[in-house]
Design a protein around this nucleic acid. Structure first.
Lengths: 226, 226
DNA sequence: TTGCCATGTCATAAATTTGTAAGATTTTTT
DNA sequence: AAAAAATCTTACAAATTTATGACATGGCAA
């Protein structure tokens, strides 16, 4: 749960203040005095959020933001800009290059926390909400429901209850039909990249999924390929 | 529920005319003379709807719309564009960048009101003042009351007492039934933007809401989806 | 100021989900 | 046909998530 936050700020006092505060809140904090240094750090470890001062020696904060936004890998990182200025045009420029939020100094730690939390919160959801329908089985991400969509059943769409993981698994499989997925692939795509679980765990979840679908006679939609 | 509407219009006469009218109708109105100013305001308070003039000094209305649409936070805000032109291509351009509706000057206050209402109803049902009725539970935003609307109970409509937050929460849920809302989503939509509260706080309020509804046996209308 | 109400937070209880191990079964190889 | 390899099942304890009650704080009115 502890997100990594990169602070790019040349004034040591402010840097210290912010980092102390964030560490206290439970974040992992990285600090850079210059944009150049920050670039190097980002190259190494991808932070979950970046706080950038507007005014920096050499490369300005805004250039740094532009750089982050142009990179495939760094594009989605949420950014909050910090500035002493209260100039309106700056504010706009900041948001225009792609900062997610903007704070003028001085600010309270409390407010900073609030904005960080809000920004992190909003960044996460990026799932498609489209209904998937395969062979009479329908999955709706919005209502989070799985039902039978056969004509005969249409009047009384039976609902199939699944646990969170089974739901994600089914969603993934339904979004990628007609192909074989290795256990490793499924772990990567459904469980997430850096998880440490046994391969065999996939079997069990597939089993649970099939079991849930048994009642609907749709369990043959999932097949094993050796 | 009195929605907040932001007017971005450089001609003082028109701005005045519109704002007078909307205030009269019961909306909370914010005004900006330029897109730049508007950006600053949006950054501060998230309006429920934005009226933008096409022709603005410096940043054009269309750029402003594009900016709003590109921001995670401002993306869902409904937008109505105002213009003196009647050019079809403009209309298309306006809708293309993401405006929800489009009005050519001069327009009658009556028509403006109608469109605003329509757009609000379509995009954010919970801010329109319409009575919501779900599964025998009725919520009236104007009288700020929640009652049972079952036939049997009709004679003695029992009233359910709720705190302000519970009321807003229930209103939101009733306006968006049949879908799952994450804690983060609820915080954004019910508590408002830029608030700093724990995710878990939502749990507590849901609990209070359910408790209040228990007496009416309608508490099963709110379900948990893991 | 005092008292009350609404709210947010925390600690703890309750409920659900998930990963694993171990044995049963099926498929493939030898 | 037997052995080997892979998959399926089931049971269960650990881990995670949600529900609940209690408490502290802050605003507001009496």
């Amino acid at each position: 749960m502890s997100a990594t936050i990169l602070i790019v700020e040349d004034e040591p006092a402010i840097q210290e203040l912010i980092s102390y505060n964030l560490r206290n809140t439970g974040y992992v904090v990285l600090c850079a005095d210059t944009a150049e240094e920050a670039v190097a750090m980002v190259n190494d470890v991808l932070p979950d959020l970046v706080l950038v001062d507007w005014m920096l020696p050499n490369m300005s904060g805004i250039d740094f933001v532009r750089l982050l936004r142009s990179g495939q890998r760094t594009k989605p990182i949420p950014i909050i800009m910090l500035t002493a200025r209260v100039d309106e045009t700056d504010k706009i420029a900041g948001l225009e290059v792609g900062a997610d939020d903007y704070m003028t100094k001085p600010f309270s730690p409390r407010e900073l926390n609030a904005r960080i939390k809000a920004v992190l919160r909003r960044r996460i959801p990026e799932v498609s909400d489209e209904v998937v329908d395969v062979g009479g089985l329908r999955l709706d991400p919005t209502t989070h429901r799985v039902t039978i969509s056969d004509v005969l059943e249409a009047a009384h769409p039976r609902e199939i209850l699944l646990g969170p993981t089974e739901f994600r698994l089914l969603h993934y499989l339904m979004a990628h039909t007609e192909r074989v997925h290795s256990r490793a692939q499924l772990l990567d795509r459904v469980w997430g990249d850096h998880v440490f679980v046994e391969d065999r765990t996939v079997d069990v979840h597939i089993r649970r999924l099939r079991k849930a679908l048994e009642a609907t006679e749709k369990d043959d939609l999932i097949q094993t390929v050796r």
